[in-house]
Amino acid sequence: MSRSTPTTAGANSVESLEALAFELRSKLLELCGTYEGAVHIGGDLSVADILVALYHYGLNVDPADIASPERDRFILSKGHAAVCMYIAMAMRGFFSYDDIVDTYGQLDSAYGMHPCKVQLPGVECSTGSLGHGLPLAVGMALSARHRGEAHRVFTLMGDGETGEGSVWEAVMAARSNELGNMVAIIDRNRQLMTSFAEERVVFEPYPDKWRAFGWNVVEVDGHDMTELVTAIDELPEPSSRIPTVIIAETVKGKGVDFMERNLAWHAGSLGAEDLEKARASLSSGHQGETA
C-alpha cells in the first residue's frame, strides 16, 4: 500500500510549523478575550502544537474535498479542545477564522464548545463525551482496511480521558484486529479538570500500560515540533498490523506563564488586562524559542 501524495501542508518546515503554532495560540487568546463564556484554554494550549503538526503537516486532508475516501481521518476525542481544532483547520483553509471568532458558542453557530459533524462538515465526528473517539476510530480503521484504502485514522485524547474504560476496550479491539492504520495521540498534560492527574489516579507507568496491550509506543515532547514531525514521519505503514500510540508529554496552558500547570485555567475567559499579559507572555516565550 502506498500513501497518496500529501497535499501541500506536508511540505511545511519545522520553522514554519512553529510559526503556525504561535499564530494558533495567539488566535486562541484572542477568542478567549472576545468570547464571554469560558473557553477550555488550558487543554487547547496543550494540544496546539499537536494540532498544527497534524493539520499542517501529517494529515493527508484537503479542505476542497472533505469527503475524499483517501483522506486521513482525524477524531478529536477530547472534544473540549474543539476551538483549537477549528482554528487549526481554519488556518489550513477549512473554515473562516473570522466566522469562528464572530459566532463561537452563539445560537445557531456551527462552532460550539464540542464539535458536531452534522453542523460542521469537515469535522469527522461528533465528540465531547470522553472515551468515545477511539472506538469510532476502530470502526473507521476496519472500514479502511476492508476497502483496501491506505489512509490512517488518528485520534487525539487527553491522558485524563484514558481513565474511561471504553478507551481500553478500544485499545484491545484495535490490537485484536491488527489495525496498524490507527494512530492514537495522547495529550499527556498530567492534569484532570480539578486536580493533578497522579493525585487522583495512578497513570504511571503510563507507556507500559500501552505496551502491555500490544501497541507500538512512541514518546515525544508534545511541544517540540521536530519530535512531533519525526514521530509522524516514522509511523509504521498503514498496512502494518500493530497500532501506534504517540504519548506526547505536554503542559496544560503551554505558552502563557500564568496558565501553565495552573488548575484554575482548565477553562476560563480573559479580560482585557489578562489578555495583554497573556499575549506578552506568549510573545516573550516565542521570541525566546526563536532567538
Binding site: K117, P135, L136, G139, M140, S143, S166, E169, A173
Partner: peptide, 15 residues
C-alpha cells in the same frame, strides 16, 4: 465489550 462494540459500529457507519 458492549461500549466499543457500538462505538465501532458508529465508526463503520460514519464511513
Amino acid at each position: 465489550a458492549e461500549q466499543v462494540c457500538v462505538g465501532v459500529a458508529a465508526g463503520l457507519a460514519y464511513d
